[in-house]
């Protein structure tokens, strides 16, 4: 039984990483305002959202299984409070931190109508921190990290996110450029009246 949990925990962890990679890449694509091959603009946003919700589900299973897995030795507190785990406090701590960030990203996004665009966008920058944290957590605490298939998956994920971020900071990233300020000129033809009033 606990072997099954362990496999489930590992498997959902890997799937979560892949989904989060997709989520980050699609988030960047959403920000670009450009369609992707086979995905119109509105669908890029919609898939970004769906994939992040799905990632949330897989993360929930991932941590849920670990909770019941005697090998991991985790309790509810150590799942959400970073660096509080008894075993592997650093690597499991990264996992807890990543989980908190991603939960915050998903919850604020689902409630963004109430939160308002400014605060929501501010929190959304945490996406760029959450992904490397999740990756490091997987590399440090995963028992498959050095297997060939896991190295391949990790490599593809890293390449995808690096490519997305490289695109994000490139010159012609956004389809519609940010609004540039219009030069200010002095008002012509104006000779206004004196302050003393009627004449």
């Amino acid at each position: 039984m606990s072997d099954a949990l362990w496999y489930l925990g590992r498997g959902t962890g890997v799937v979560s990483l892949v989904l989060l990679t997709l989520v980050v890449a699609l988030g960047v694509a959403t920000r670009s305002g450009r369609p992707l091959p086979g995905l119109p603009r509105f669908a890029v946003t919609a898939v970004h959202r769906s994939a992040s919700l799905l990632a949330g589900v897989f993360l929930a299973i991932h941590v849920g299984t670990l909770l019941f897995d005697p090998y991991a030795g985790l309790n509810l507190v150590s799942l959400v409070v970073p660096f509080s785990a008894g075993a592997h406090p650093f690597w499991y701590g990264l996992g807890a931190l990543g989980l908190d960030l991603i939960l915050a990203l998903v919850v604020t996004s689902v409630l963004r109508d109430r939160i308002g665009p400014r605060v929501w966008r501010g929190i959304h920058w945490a996406a760029y921190a959450s992904w490397p944290i999740a990756l490091a957590h997987g590399l440090g605490s995963g028992s498959d990290a050095s297997t060939g298939w896991m190295l391949t998956i990790t490599g593809v994920c890293v390449a995808t996110v690096l490519a997305a971020v490289g695109w994000r900071v490139s010159e012609r990233f956004a389809e519609v450029p940010d609004l540039a300020p219009v030069p200010v000129t002095a008002p012509p033809l104006v000779g206004t009246g004196p302050p003393e009033g009627p004449r």
């Binding site: 519609v176 609004l179 219009v182 000129t185 008002p187 012509p188 033809l189």
Partner: peptide, 21 residues
């Protein structure tokens, strides 16, 4: 003169709305 006023008005845009800017 109207072109100059229009340039002035363009510069007075609050810079928030795409079609205005």
């Amino acid at each position: 003169e109207t072109a100059r006023i229009t340039a002035y008005l363009a510069g007075q845009s609050a810079g928030q709305c795409g079609p205005c800017v």
